[in-house]
């Protein structure tokens, strides 16, 4: 682990020294020029924005799916569905990427234009033009990819809610939703949070699917429908083949940043789970 960090740093230092721009501030990525200049800001921004958007879309749906399987679907169907969700979690990411670029990108063009036309006054949907190769599309694909993981873990946690807690709620005269609200969700919350964080980490590290979607522009913009956007991982995948020695170093430096960000997210997840322990079912 430490070795990973050390070697990434060692290989990144020469490139960082050659950097004519500021690694944190520069908004371009031209490390292969005679005067190399590159900065992480735009890439880190794209990574965070697309992943967070994906999380916002995926978590409610994933919790819904998990509840459907654990508490709403008929028992026999639930077993099959759980199995299907597990299988979907195993579908390789490159396949989602392929699906996204061939199927989703043309599909979303129309809706994007519609939203742009009527909601364009909201900065989020504004911009000069809209297109399928945008942050929004990347986020949708990321959301679809992390959904099975979050749903699978959440379902697991919901099923672990002791039967007697649910019966306690039922015996107080709770409706199904109220049983879920009083007994299931509080018990499952730490599990759902850590599943979401895991999903967030996955989304940020996801490379191939977003590399196929992002048009590899540089810049910081909240216009999520505009045909621009990039992420650390996508930039590595797209830029690696053409990179010279400095270029590789620059990419490795960006990978180091990604490593640190995911490390922070995962640690945060563990802390959240640990802090909830006092009130968790483990104490009972």
């Amino acid at each position: 682990m430490a070795a990973i960090a050390v070697f990434l740093i060692v290989e990144a230092v020469p490139a960082l020294q050659a950097n004519q721009g500021s690694f944190l501030g520069t908004l371009t990525w031209t490390p292969n020029n005679t005067e190399p200049s590159f900065g992480i800001a735009a890439l880190a921004f794209g990574t965070l924005l697309s992943s967070l958007l994906a999380l916002v879309m995926a978590v409610p749906v994933a919790v819904g799916v998990a509840l459907f399987i654990s508490h709403y679907a008929p028992r026999r169907l639930a077993g099959v569905l759980g199995y299907v969700i597990d299988l979907l979690a195993a579908v390789p990411s490159v396949i989602y990427g392929l699906w996204g670029v061939i199927f989703l990108v043309p599909l979303v063009q129309g809706p994007y234009e519609f939203i742009h036309e009527y909601l364009g006054f909201i900065p989020l949907f504004g911009g000069d033009s809209v297109g399928g190769h945008s942050i929004m599309t990347a986020s949708i694909i990321l959301a679809i990819m992390i959904l099975p993981i979050i749903a699978a873990i959440s379902r697991e946690v919901f099923l672990q809610v002791p039967r007697m807690h649910e019966e306690a709620a039922l015996a107080l005269g709770a409706t199904r939703w109220e049983v879920i609200k009083t007994a299931v969700l509080p018990f499952g919350r730490p599990g759902v949070i850590s599943a979401s964080m895991l999903g967030l980490g996955r989304a940020m590290g996801e490379t191939i699917a977003v590399a196929l979607i992002f048009p590899a522009t540089f810049g910081i913009s909240f216009q999520i429908l505009a045909p621009e956007g990039n992420s650390i991982a996508a930039n590595i995948a797209n830029g690696f083949a053409e990179a010279g020695p400095i270029g590789r170093g620059a990419l490795i430096a960006s990978g180091l940043v990604l490593f640190i960000i995911t490390l922070l997210v995962n640690t945060a997840a563990r802390l959240i789970v640990a802090r909830r322990k006092e009130f968790s079912g483990a104490a009972a």
Binding site: M164, H165, E167, A168, A171, A183, P186, F279, S280, A284
Partner: peptide
Amino acid sequence: FQRPNPFPTM
């Protein structure tokens, strides 16, 4: 119930 079952999160 047979076994005490207070809601553990409350």
